[in-house]
Nucleic acid binder design. Structure first.
Length: 238
DNA sequence: GCGACAG
DNA sequence: ATCTTGTCGC
């Protein structure tokens, strides 16, 4: 017996994770089921490339624009960019965010010529009401280590971390640690970091800090945001 | 009933 | 998310 290996792991079909639920109730049931598959410990090799992902909504056409950017890990240089257009299959509902973003974002990542060693998501991981935010969903769908990095809190209680860069406080739901409020720039509002998949919280904190040497948000998030904005503007002009 | 509510 | 003015702190 190998009690350290979940027996249900082989039953997880990546395509199933990108299906569109028929209702919010069905979506929540899927989240509760999938949350048990999230690996909150380090299962990643040498990180040479880090990807950032983002989505924007084009209101007049009802289309989504998804972007994936691949960065070189030590230099934070942009190596590759992918954008694509897709239709929205699910409305934006707080707590069910990933059912809207995951399908196009997963395709954008698969459009890269290399699989990233790590992905930083613009949204939470396990810092979620059912412990299954976008970062968990994407990490499981692609079986790639992911980190959740949100600009604002969705759930949990946090205290204000110290002002110097690198200070952090736990994001708590009672005794349970959901993530952390991390000060990426001295005196600037913290970001919310949580485990996505196959990454521990200390590793996630270290990476988000490393990826944010100059600005509040990680360079992965900034690069993906720039790209998706540019692509959205091109859709509007057409 | 009221507030809170990733993007 | 997006839009936008005024205010505060360093």
């Amino acid at each position: 017996m190998r009690p350290d290996q979940p027996l249900t792991r082989s039953s997880l079909d990546p395509a199933t994770l990108l299906e569109v639920p028929a209702s919010a109730q069905a979506a929540e049931a899927l989240q509760r089921r999938w949350a048990g598959q999230v690996l909150a410990s380090d299962d990643l090799g040498p990180v040479t490339t880090v990807a950032g992902v983002d989505v924007a909504y084009h209101e007049s056409s009802g289309e989504l624009v998804a972007a994936a950017v691949l960065l070189d890990a030590p230099s934070l240089t942009v190596l590759e960019e992918v954008t694509l257009r897709d239709h929205a299959r699910f409305p934006y509902v707080p707590g069910l965010f990933s059912f809207r973003e995951c399908p196009p974002v997963a395709r954008a990542v698969q459009g890269l010529s290399r699989r990233p060693d790590l992905i930083v998501c613009d949204g939470h991981g396990v810092a979620h009401p059912r412990r299954f935010g976008l970062a968990c969903h994407l990490g499981l769908a692609l079986n790639i280590p992911t980190i959740g990095c949100g600009k604002t809190r969705l759930t949990g209680e946090d205290t204000v971390p110290g002002l110097p860069r690198g200070e952090w406080t736990p994001l708590l739901d009672g005794p349970e640690v959901l993530g952390a409020a991390l000060r990426t720039q001295s005196g600037v509002r913290p970001v919310y970091v949580s485990v996505g998949h196959r990454v521990s919280l200390p590793t996630a904190l270290a990476w988000v800090l490393r990826l944010s040497p100059r600005y509040r948000l990680p360079e992965t998030t900034r690069a993906a945001d720039r790209l998706v904005r540019r692509a959205l503007a091109e859709v509007s002009h057409a």
